[in-house]
Design a protein around this nucleic acid. Structure first.
Lengths: 215, 215
DNA sequence: CCCTTATCTTGACGGTGTCAAGTTGCATTG
DNA sequence: CAATGCAACTTGACACCGTCAAGATAAGGG
C-alpha cells in the first residue's frame, strides 16, 4: 500500500533494536539472543545493528539500562502505593509491613522481568568490566535509591541503627538478590514461594526480632 | 621413549576431561570453555569427548558435581576446625562465632572456586532442567547437609526456633548466595569486603539482635 | 543536479556445538 | 595364533554465531 518508505533505510533502527531485543529476551531468555536473529526479526541484514552498536555487549548494556529504569519504577514508593492502595502507618508493627512491601516490590520486578534482571546483575556485563558509562551511572543511581530507602527505615528504627547504612543496604540487597537469582535460575522451584521467603527475610532484617509467627 | 601406549587410545579420557575442564574454567571462566579447546588441551580430536559425554551439558554437570563434593568439604565442621583450630564453646556470644564460621566457610568456597560455584548454582544447568540425575542427587545432598547445620543452630537457640527450619535454611542460604553471586559477578568490588558482609549477615540472622557493634 | 554522508547489504573469516561415517587397535574367542 | 567384534578415536561436514571489509543505496544540503 502506501509504504512510501523504501525500507532500505529503516528510519529508527536504534530504538527498534532495543525494543525488539527486550521482547526477545523476555520470551527466549538472554542466552538465545543473537545479533543475527535480532536483525532478522527487525527486518534488516545481519550487520545493520553494528552501525548503531559497536558490539553485542553495547546492545546488552542498552537493554540493561532500560531494565534499571523499569526497576526504579517498581521499587519507588509511588508504585507500591498503587499496588497496595493504602500505606497504613500503624506504629504497632514497627514498619514491618512497609519493609515487606519494599521487599515484595523488589522480588516482583525480578520475577516478572527475569531476563532483564539477569542482564542487570549478571556476570556477563560486569565481570569483564564491559559496562557502558551510561549503564554504570544508571546502576549507581539505582543502588543509591535503594540505599536511601534503607536509611529511611533505619531512621524510623525499623532497621538496626548500629550497622553502617551502607553495609546494611548491601546485605539486605544481597539477600533479596540471592532469593531472586535462585528463583530465576531455576534452583528454587516456585514463584509464589519466593515471595513468602521475602517475608521471612524482611522479618530477619528487623532490628529486634519479636515473636512474630507467620502472617 | 617408552611411550608404549600408542596414544590413539588415550586410556582415561573421561577423568582427564573432567580434571582439565575444571582447571580451565578456574583460569578462564565458565563461558570461555569450549569442547574444542578442551579436546585440544587434552590432546585428542574435537569430537573425542562426545564418546564420554553425550553433551557439553553433561560435561558441565560432571564438573558441577565435583564442585558439590568440594563444597561439602569446605562447609563441613571438620574443615572449619582445621582452619580455626579451636571451637570455643563459649555461652556468652550465643554461638554467633560459630555461625560466623559457617558463613565464612560458605563464602570462602564460593570466592576461591568462582567458576565451579557459577556452574553449581547458575541458570545454565538448572533453568532448562538439564541436570544429570547424579548431579541432582549431589545438590540435594548438599542442601540437606546445609539444612541440618541450620537446624543444629536452631536447636541451640542461636537461630530463631519459630521459623520453619526449611524456610530459615533457604533464606540464610539465599543471603549468602546473594553475597557470593554479587562478588563473583563483579557487581561488588572486593573479596575482603564480602567476608565482612558475611559477618553482618550472620548477625542479622540471630534470633535476637543484641547491641552488637562490629567486632 | 551533484556530491557528501549516513545507512544498510553482501561476502568472508574464524569460532562454536554436534552429527555421520570411517579408522585404529585392544581383547576375546574359535 | 589368527580372525573378529567392539570400544575408542579421527576426519569431514553442517548450521549456527560475532564481527570486519568493501560495496550499494538513498536522503539532504550545496
Amino acid at each position: 500500500m502506501d509504504k512510501q518508505k523504501s525500507n532500505y533505510h529503516h528510519g529508527n533502527l536504534y530504538q527498534s533494536l532495543i525494543n525488539s531485543a527486550g521482547d526477545m529476551i523476555q520470551e527466549q531468555g538472554i542466552d538465545s539472543l543473537s545479533m543475527r536473529k535480532l536483525a532478522d526479526y527487525v527486518g534488516v541484514s545481519r550487520t545493520a545493528p553494528y552501525h548503531h552498536f559497536k558490539d553485542k555487549n553495547q546492545l546488552l548494556c542498552a537493554i540493561a539500562e532500560t531494565g534499571f529504569k523499569l526497576q526504579d519504577e517498581f521499587v519507588s514508593p509511588d508504585h507500591s502505593e498503587v499496588n497496595h492502595h493504602v500505606i497504613t502507618v500503624d506504629a504497632k508493627d514497627n514498619g514491618l509491613q512497609e519493609l515487606e512491601r519494599l521487599v515484595q516490590s523488589y522480588i516482583q520486578f525480578a520475577i516478572t522481568h527475569p531476563a532483564h534482571y539477569d542482564l542487570m546483575y549478571g556476570g556477563k556485563i560486569w565481570k569483564q568490566k564491559l559496562a557502558t558509562e551510561s549503564l554504570e551511572i544508571a546502576s549507581r543511581h539505582s543502588f543509591k535509591h535503594w540505599l536511601e530507602r534503607i536509611e529511611e527505615f533505619q531512621a524510623r528504627k525499623v532497621l538496626n541503627q548500629q550497622e553502617s547504612s551502607l553495609r546494611l543496604a548491601q546485605v539486605a540487597w544481597a539477600t533479596l538478590h540471592g532469593l531472586c537469582r535462585l528463583t530465576n535460575d531455576g534452583v528454587y522451584v516456585d514463584n509464589d514461594d519466593v515471595l513468602e521467603m521475602g517475608k521471612t527475610a524482611a522479618r530477619m532484617m528487623l532490628s529486634n526480632a519479636t515473636d512474630s509467627s507467620g502472617s
